[in-house]
Write a protein that binds this DNA or RNA. Structure first.
Length: 389
DNA sequence: GATCCACGGGAATACACGGATG
DNA sequence: CATCCGTGTATTCCCGTGGATC
């Protein structure tokens, strides 16, 4: 919804005549309704979820794989489909072949980055199951849990909940998720998504699905498809796409971030197609490894603002000096001390990297400076064209 | 009046370094 | 020589506050 608004705004601005035809198509934070080249993952997921197609509860499942391997893309697209075509809650009776009459299965996709608490999780699940408006505040967590149990208590009512992005600094772990959902009394199964191998987790999961990184040709397919949807024809050459795919080494998020950044640079420079220099500059603006943009864009406003302004500040300054510079900008209404703390916190979370300065031997502990660990060009663009994320 | 959660200040603690101490 | 201490910074941690919502 957010993204669409931004895109419309952009399309209006550019008249969709420029090099970039559709921002969403080349955005690393958006997913296609039909993921490209992940059919084996899709099959494995359907195997695991098969019981739910007949109205019974599937086993809890853990899906894992590296950054940019298409986990989110596949899961979100699949749950979307399942909810509209299989979950009968919103489907008029008799329009599709359903197993047991009256059985209702809700398929809910939850982004843990945006539902960071127990309260938020219950709220997201209820939101996906019911058409009613769910309170955001003013009501206790236990109340929400009761409400969820109510929703699940109707005979033959069940829910399969996908919870994406587990185990990141800002999100809870699979163990936490299991504990939270175990407290819910009702027919509910989960599909948890994370990066850690199942063996590293403190939880035994009955079923796992591994998603491997994209092969080179697979990633080329993804980029080709996305470029043809989002860019003017022939804006990116085949050789350029292969180059980006190689550079990204299987990480679709990084590859799309580079493509998006290059398109942005080319547009700003008035090119009608990507130059190799655009691509080089764009890849330089994508650190490897890089933090997912979705993580950055899910941060509270004030942190995103600090990150945005950070991009305008001389990056050789110390943390304190940087904070000072950021706090003095007129868009920022925070004390330098608070900005300092934000910078340290962001560094601790891996969104920034602290680099201890060398030389310059003054008294006391030597200062460090911070460098972004996220795709800066894309963040800048999404932040500036949007707002309210 | 209850409740969630982002905010934001500032106290507490860690660290680097040189010099004093045992 | 190893350890402790003081000083000046850098970094981390805690917790009350208040807006918004029900």
């Amino acid at each position: 919804m957010d993204i669409k608004d931004r895109i419309r705004r952009r399309q209006r601005a550019t008249g969709a005549t420029g090099l970039i035809r559709e921002y969403e198509a080349i955005s690393p934070v958006s997913h296609l309704a039909e993921p490209i080249g992940r059919s084996s993952t899709l099959e494995q997921l359907l195997d695991a979820l098969e019981p739910s197609l007949n109205g019974s509860l599937p086993p809890d499942t853990y899906v894992w794989g590296p950054s940019g391997s298409g986990k989110s893309a596949v899961i979100s697209a699949l749950f979307d489909r399942l909810e509209t075509h299989v979950g009968s809650a919103h489907t008029p009776i008799g329009t599709t072949t359903r197993a047991e009459p009256g059985s209702r299965t809700s398929f809910v996709y939850v982004n843990a980055r945006r539902a960071k608490t127990e309260f938020g999780l219950y709220r997201s699940i209820l939101n996906g199951m019911l058409d009613e408006r769910i309170p955001e505040q003013g009501v206790g967590t236990a109340t929400l849990r009761d409400r969820l149990e109510d929703a699940l208590s109707t005979p033959r009512k069940q829910a399969v909940v996908a919870v994406d992005h587990l185990g990141e600094p800002e999100t809870y772990s699979l163990a936490d998720l299991e504990a939270i959902l175990a407290a819910v009394d009702g027919s509910l199964a989960w599909v948890a998504v994370g990066r850690d191998p199942p063996g590293d987790l403190a939880v035994d999961v009955p079923s796992t699905v591994h998603v491997a990184a994209y092969e080179r040709h697979g990633l080329v397919d993804v980029l080709t498809e996305r470029a043809s949807d989002g860019l003017s024809s022939e804006a990116a050459s085949h050789a350029q796409i292969r180059y980006v795919a190689d550079w990204a080494a299987g990480d679709a998020h990084a590859a799309l971030a580079a493509l998006f950044g290059a398109a942005e640079l080319a547009t700003d420079a008035g090119h009608d197609r990507l130059t190799d220099a655009d691509i080089d500059s764009a890849t330089e603006a994508v650190p490897r490894p890089s933090v997912a943009l979705g993580r950055v864009l899910a941060l509270p406003r004030s942190r995103q603002l600090v990150l945005r302004e950070l991009l305008e500040v001389d990056d050789s300054l110390s943390v304190d000096e940087t904070a000072e510079a950021i706090a003095s900008r007129r868009t920022v209404d925070l004390s330098a001390g608070t900005v300092t703390r934000y910078l340290y916190e962001l560094a601790d979370a891996g969104i920034l990297e602290r680099v201890t300065a060398e030389g310059d031997s003054r008294l006391g502990r030597p200062p460090s400076r911070v460098e972004p660990r996220f795709p800066t060009l894309v963040f800048r663009e999404l932040f500036d064209s949007g707002r309210e994320t």
